[in-house]
Amino acid sequence: MSNSKLYKGSLTTIILKLLSENDKMYGYEITQKVKELTNGELKITEGALYPSLHKLEADGLLDVEVAKVDNRMRKYYKLTESGTKETANKLSELENYIKTMQALVNPKFSLE
């Protein structure tokens, strides 16, 4: 993960969001996609990514598929039905969090 701990709590949401935009993804692909989307600002290490993926799998939010690619086996992750619902919840939670933080950091004062 990047040097900032602020991103840590949002890792699950990031993974779910990426998987909602792609049919299926594998671990390394997720790390590279995040790096690309954030222009290198956010780097997810395998030590942070895989435990999150495995937890989401254990919770029934992700389904897995194993295929042979480039002389090796590759484990793909995709959203389950409950994973799709959870993605919407998580994104809504994150939006509210961002709004709250914005209100705290940049409060708009009024004379009323």
Binding site: Y26, G27, Y28, E46, Y50, V66, R72, M73, K75
Partner: peptide, 9 residues
């Protein structure tokens, strides 16, 4: 299996 794929990639 998953680790090998990550390292190889």
């Amino acid at each position: 299996m998953e680790m090998v794929d990550h390292v190889a990639s």
